[in-house]
Computed example of a mutant assay.
Amino acid sequence: MRILMVALAVTLLAGCAGSVMSDARSKPPYKTLNSDKPEKDVAQCVQFSWQDEAVFGVDASGYLQPGEKGGTTVYTRSAESFVDVTTNASGTVLSYYAQHDDFVAKRRLAALATCL
């Protein structure tokens, strides 16, 4: 029963986050970064860094899902911040999106940058 409730909660969270992400992707990213590391390693690093409660407190969250056009998307609750991690000919590209240009968005960007 608990597994069913968790699965339902994750499904609802992904559905809400999906529409927010689609809206954000219709505009240019907040920041685009590049890395020489493999896409999977970068995505896992970002997820881990965004889950650091010492840095983000109760807002510490990081979820992985397959990217809309390949790669991986790492996102927070309600998709307040998310990053599309993809691979191209020059390496790994990170397209970072934030709903608000505030302290939290900048802190998430800084945490993301440690994974490059």
Rank of each mutant, 00 (worst) to 15 (best):
V85S: 07
S35A: 14
D36C: 10
Y30E: 10
T76Q: 01
K27V: 11
K106I: 04
Y97A: 04
V55R: 05
L13Q: 05
E68G: 15
W50S: 05
F103P: 04
V46M: 03
G57N: 13
Q65H: 06
A89K: 09
T72M: 03
D102L: 04
T73K: 04
D84E: 08
Y97K: 05
Q47F: 00
S78M: 14
E80G: 14
N34K: 15
S19Q: 14
V83C: 04
K106W: 06
G15W: 09
Q44T: 03
Q65V: 01
F56P: 00
S49C: 05
A24G: 09
M21T: 06
W50A: 02
Q99T: 10
L8H: 10
A9E: 03
G71I: 01
D84F: 09
S90V: 07
A79Y: 05
T11V: 13
G18E: 15
Q44D: 07
R108N: 07
S61Q: 02
A43V: 04
A24W: 07
C16P: 10
N34C: 13
K37W: 13
K40R: 14
A14G: 08
P38M: 06
F103I: 02
R77W: 06
V10Q: 09
S26L: 14
V20G: 07
A111P: 03
C16L: 12
A98S: 04
Q44G: 04
K27C: 12
K37T: 08
T86Q: 13
F48P: 03
G70F: 02
D84G: 03
